Simulated scan of single mutants.
Amino acid sequence: MAGRKRRKMKSLAATAPNNGAASSEEREESDEQNSLFRVPVDILEQILCRLNLKENILASAVCKQWLAAAISVRVANKPPWLMFFPKFGDLVEFYDPSVRQTYSVELPELRGSRLCYAKDGWLLLYKPRSLRVFFFNPYTKDVINLPGLELTYQIVAFSAAPTSPDCIVFTVKHVSPTLVAISTCKPGATEWTTANYQNRLPFVSSIWNKLVFCNGLFYCLSLTGWLGVYDPEEHTWLVRVVPPPRCPENFFVKNWWKGKFMAEHNGDIYVIYTCSTANPVVYKLDQINKIWVEMQTLGGLTLFASFLSSQARTDILGVMRNSIYFSKVRFYGRRCISYSLDKNRYYPRKQCYDWGEQDPFESIWIDAPPDLSAFA
């Protein structure tokens, strides 16, 4: 009798649910799945250190081990610095917005020069008296000369550092509303190449145009918001049938054309419209649907806007994310102002800003130096 009860209880135990306890097969499957993420720490760090900031953050969500490794190799790069040209003398100032620190250095090499563009730590400059065009690295003092060219009302940009074989210098000016003259040059060339191109749509150029290099193409935003595109490989120019970004309410006031900025990042193009009586409006170009889409958030992006060239960065951590930093100079002792899309407000707070009162050649954003030895 006792034996039958024991056999019956054993039978019931075999058929009863396990109340959450995993079967041996399930445990083996789970262990096998977890083992996929059990990479030796040194190897895991070597893998994660090759990711950009956004990819690093995504990888940190896999498990606790990956989180610890991702944080250990996560590097937030320095934001660009704001460089100020003096009206007189040779003392150039650099402002680090992350720590609100100013550095000064004598750069007599820049005397009589005009700022044109900045990229990859290099400046493109122009001397109006001698028509000299040249690259200058303010940290190493390296100079790379280009053939002379008269730059009047046209804007200038370059695709990569002048030490790169991919460097192309580009400038455009309108001859008439339906005709533009485009000049290009590479470091080491003996002259500029200039050609005229017809427009299907009116395109008016000035120093207030905006110019970026993105995915092998130069994009130029005209005075009235039309987008011209130049392909340096195919030597083609086209004014795209993309309606200009919609201007904010009350945008068309005095000096309205000076409150526009354009930047590129990872294949995307952004345009920032500002107005003295309204908050900034940011648009991103939808290349497929050929429209400008208004952005309610930057998704962690940080924009650094100046009249001659602007930057967009995703590798900036902390309160600087999802913000726009403008090269508005010397306001109440500060070297720039910022606008937070999270808080919908300017810092420092002010009722309005007159973007037209600033000299466009006075300041520009440039990559931060690798160290402070240049200012020793």
Rank of each mutant, 00 (worst) to 15 (best):
L110A: 04
P40Q: 05
L317T: 02
V229E: 01
K290G: 02
C352Y: 12
E32S: 14
G188R: 12
E191Q: 12
L238K: 06
S98I: 12
Q33L: 13
G300V: 00
T193Q: 14
P128C: 05
A189I: 08
L107Y: 03
Y347V: 01
S104D: 15
Q46F: 04
D96N: 15
S222V: 01
S183E: 04
L221V: 09
V62E: 01
E29A: 14
Y353W: 09
V229S: 01
W226G: 03
V241N: 02
L110V: 06
W365A: 00
K10T: 00
N145Y: 14
L201M: 11
M320P: 02
G356W: 07
T140L: 02
Q358D: 01
C185P: 03
P187W: 05
Q46W: 08
K119S: 05
E357W: 12
R27L: 15
V143T: 10
L125G: 03
F304A: 01
D286T: 13
L238H: 01
K260W: 03
G148F: 00
K54E: 08
E264W: 04
P202Q: 11
R6Y: 02
D367E: 11
F88H: 06
P280H: 07
R27P: 10
P17N: 10
W66A: 03
P360Q: 10
G112D: 10
H235N: 03
Y197E: 00
Y153Q: 13
L91E: 09
S35V: 15
T236F: 04
Q101F: 14
T193P: 06
V319L: 08
E264S: 15
C352L: 13
S327F: 14
I182S: 01
R132D: 04
S113H: 06
E109M: 12
T184A: 05
I288D: 13
R6K: 12
K210W: 01
S276R: 11
G216Q: 14
F326L: 08
A195Q: 09
L217I: 01
F85W: 11
P17W: 00
V73W: 04
R321N: 07
L217E: 14
A61N: 02
V242W: 02
S60E: 00
Y139W: 04
Q358F: 09
R335S: 04
A13V: 08
S164F: 10
I155Q: 11
V73N: 05
P86V: 00
Y230S: 00
W365M: 01
K260H: 08
P232L: 06
C167Q: 08
R7C: 10
Q33K: 15
C167V: 07
L146P: 02
G112C: 13
N215E: 08
K119T: 08
N56Q: 02
L341F: 08
Y353I: 10
S327E: 04
V133G: 03
Q296K: 12
F307T: 07
I272Y: 06
L58K: 10
Y95T: 13
I47K: 09
P177K: 12
T224M: 14
M320V: 10
C49G: 01
A13R: 10
